[in-house]
Computed example of a mutant assay.
Amino acid sequence: MLIKRLTNFSFKIVFSCLFLVAVLLIVSDIWAPFTTDATIQKRISNVTSQVNGIVQNVYVSNGEQVNKGDVLFSIEDQDYISLLASSKADYIITQQNIESLNAQLQSDKANLKIQHAEYNKVLHHFKRFKKLFNAHQISEDDFEQSKTDSELALAQIELAEANLQKTQASLGENKSNGQYLQAKANLERAQLNLERTKVKAKQAGIVTNLQLSTGDYVSNNTSPLLLVDNQHGWLIANFNEKGIKALSHSQKVLVVYDAFPGQVFEHRIDSIDYAVDTGVGIIGKASTTNTSERWIRKSQSFPARINIGNESHDLIAGSKATVMVVSEDNIFWRSFSQLVMHTISLLRYIY
């Protein structure tokens, strides 16, 4: 009988403690928000080739640490070398054409001067013949011939000016010749594409998800590997909206990482997102409503970004964690947060 009473009493004590803890956890959403929905995020760079071709060599392996500028893999470059040679030839031919046009320009200018000099000579001859014709000292035929000669000389000046303008237009002003600029652009593009056959890391990081081998074909819309920046990471924790008043910039939080059982870390909130997708209005789109008819609905969650410092080095992107806010002004909730998180850290040894 005594054993039965002790058993019942023990059961009541345990049940009461569990009930109290449950109530405190529910209330803590307001005073000391708690969440198990927290994930490590890191900067991940998609490595893509900017040119198409067959992979010639792969210089890295999965999980390898690389630095910015390291060559990751190379693409067969024979076609790009040929294209560069062809572009160089076109560029040289265009330069020669420019030199030829410059020479033609000088020739046209000289010819225009000659035509002006010839016109002045013929004009002077015409004026003299006009005086002689008015004095009836020469025949009308001679006068008309001198007049025709002056008109022809003027026409030659106009032709020389037209040729000069044509040459100037072909040459362009201030090296703005279209053919030259096109050839130069093609040459620079060919040089750049040849350099791009060696795909380099644009940031330091760890090679991840390497799906590449010699002989594979890659294009500029494929991503055969990723680079994870292991030096910089942060924790995104999704809290219940009931606890938004308890969160602020630089708010202290306790964190238990699934990867580090038995350890509790202290961090600070870096920022809070004050909008989720269902709360963002888009210009030009009609309003939307939630069609859920449930009487009791789940509260909205919102993300907070937590600065985790150097702990990110030993954690992979996607690692899970449990987070609880510390109410530094309230000794009860501060102690409760410490108790809960240290208990969870021990439970992480089991699950």
Score class of each variant (00 low, 15 high):
residue 91 Y to R: 08
residue 252 K to I: 04
residue 335 S to K: 12
residue 74 S to L: 06
residue 297 R to N: 00
residue 246 A to W: 15
residue 179 Q to G: 01
residue 316 I to V: 10
residue 337 S to F: 15
residue 11 F to M: 06
residue 241 E to P: 07
residue 101 L to G: 08
residue 5 R to C: 05
residue 96 Q to V: 05
residue 191 Q to Y: 15
residue 273 D to N: 13
residue 93 I to K: 01
residue 284 G to P: 11
residue 45 S to R: 13
residue 51 V to M: 00
residue 337 S to Q: 05
residue 291 T to D: 12
residue 332 F to A: 00
residue 48 T to P: 10
residue 17 C to M: 01
residue 169 A to G: 02
residue 277 D to I: 11
residue 351 Y to W: 15
residue 167 T to V: 00
residue 145 Q to M: 10
residue 333 W to V: 02
residue 81 I to Q: 06
residue 304 A to V: 06
residue 221 N to E: 09
residue 218 V to T: 00
residue 290 N to G: 02
residue 219 S to K: 14
residue 183 A to T: 06
residue 11 F to R: 11
residue 81 I to N: 05
residue 341 M to G: 02
residue 189 R to Q: 00
residue 156 Q to A: 05
residue 32 A to I: 10
residue 241 E to G: 07
residue 175 K to A: 00
residue 292 S to M: 09
residue 51 V to Q: 00
residue 192 L to E: 08
residue 19 F to S: 08
residue 177 N to S: 08
residue 142 D to L: 11
residue 231 Q to D: 08
residue 45 S to L: 10
residue 10 S to Y: 15
residue 173 E to C: 05
residue 278 T to V: 09
residue 30 I to M: 07
residue 16 S to P: 11
residue 135 A to N: 09
residue 24 L to E: 02
residue 291 T to N: 13
residue 80 Y to W: 14
residue 210 L to P: 12
residue 118 E to R: 06
residue 299 S to R: 12
residue 284 G to R: 03
residue 72 L to W: 14
residue 250 S to Q: 11
residue 100 S to K: 04
